[in-house]
Design a binder for these strands. Structure first.
Lengths: 196, 196
DNA sequence: TTTTATTAATTGATCGTTCAATAAAGATAA
DNA sequence: TTATCTTTATTGAACGATCAATTAATAAAA
């Protein structure tokens, strides 16, 4: 069986299996066995590649975060207007839903856990700050600084709130699309309200 | 030790101890032992009064929900204006924080778990629907029906989003007060925007 | 004494981790 | 080419810890 250079392949397979298991059964019921079974491998391999369950959990969160980051980068170029960029930010935060339905539940599980896990809380903070910072950069090109900061704070809350309510009510894809559109309308109304 | 009529006392003590344990260590690490230790009792008493751990968890959520419900009822009377009532709704959803600091973390833990637990999901749905329904009733007195429904949906999302971000960033009481004030301002702006 | 309230010890299941064993692939040398 | 050695990849059983739940025993009130 053993081919050379399996490490990156196996690591990704185990991360995918972790997302799957947490989405299906929750973080609480996700065990080394449930993950390795989803991945079609033995339980021992998790410690071999990630040092333990905790290492795999954290690697999974980092993978989700970098996915979110790359998604926005791929959408923006030098010709993007500030308003367009704001719409892309909204889209990115709702996008992971469409490509992988099970990802959304996984996010919320990790967030809840982040209150009691130092490294997860650090990662969550990076993500939260980045959303607000991304929003502020674009709003600043459309309105004075004080208003831009406020608009970014409110937009971040609106995105997270709409997203949270959609996840918790176990919505289908149409509901997520509806929430995304509400968030975009809200950004437009903020620009109209404060825009110079 | 055994006095008669201890049941309601013990039940409440165990619910309080559950909130404390979940806030401190998370739902994942909360065990029959950690709860009974917090309550200063033995572990067997949980099965005696709640049938098991699951029963205690669900009773705790029901307690938090009814607390939230009663808080709003106590604030409103027949002389309350629609706008005042909207402010009270916002206050209620941020109020639990002040009286008991550890309650907020507990909420989020239960919400995350509700995705994988039928009864918890049912309870979460009741709460979510009630917030939106409470908001709609008051908005309807201030604007046309279609706008009132939209305003209620947006306000619910804004409240939850501001609350979630405050909880996750492990904010102090001042930050919660700041979020509460942002939510109130948002309600006022919706009334100004759509108000007849 | 009988009933109610509670404890403390125990049970069996399950958890994450560790580790010796193994299988296959490449490397080396004959 | 063939045989041997080394490395990499992987397994699954065993271990100790910990969990929720149960049970028998105990203490106090009625």
């Amino acid at each position: 069986m053993p081919k050379v250079g399996m490490e990156p392949v196996r690591r990704q397979q185990l991360i995918d299996a972790t997302i799957e298991s947490v989405a299906q059964k929750g973080l609480q019921a996700t065990t080394i066995n449930s993950i390795s079974k989803n991945a079609g491998m033995s339980s021992g391999i998790i410690s071999h590649y990630f040092g333990g369950k905790q290492g795999l959990i954290e690697a999974t969160v980092r993978y989700l975060l970098s996915n979110l980051k790359d998604d926005l980068i791929s959408k923006v170029d030098e010709k993007t207007t500030p308003t367009q960029r704001l719409m892309f930010i909204v889209e990115s935060n709702f996008a992971l839903v469409q490509q992988r339905k099970d990802t959304t539940r996984t996010w919320l599980s990790f967030w809840a856990q982040s209150m009691h896990d130092k490294e997860l809380h650090r990662l969550q903070n990076v993500n939260s700050k980045r959303l607000q910072s991304n929003l502020t950069v674009s709003f600043k090109q459309l309105m004075p600084l004080a208003q831009a900061n406020l608009a970014a704070e409110l937009t971040a809350a609106m995105i997270d709130g709409l997203w949270l309510r959609a996840v918790l009510s176990q919505s289908d894809e149409n509901q997520f699309k509806h929430s995304e559109s509400l968030a975009k309308n809200y950004v437009h109304s903020l620009i109209k309200q404060y825009g110079a």
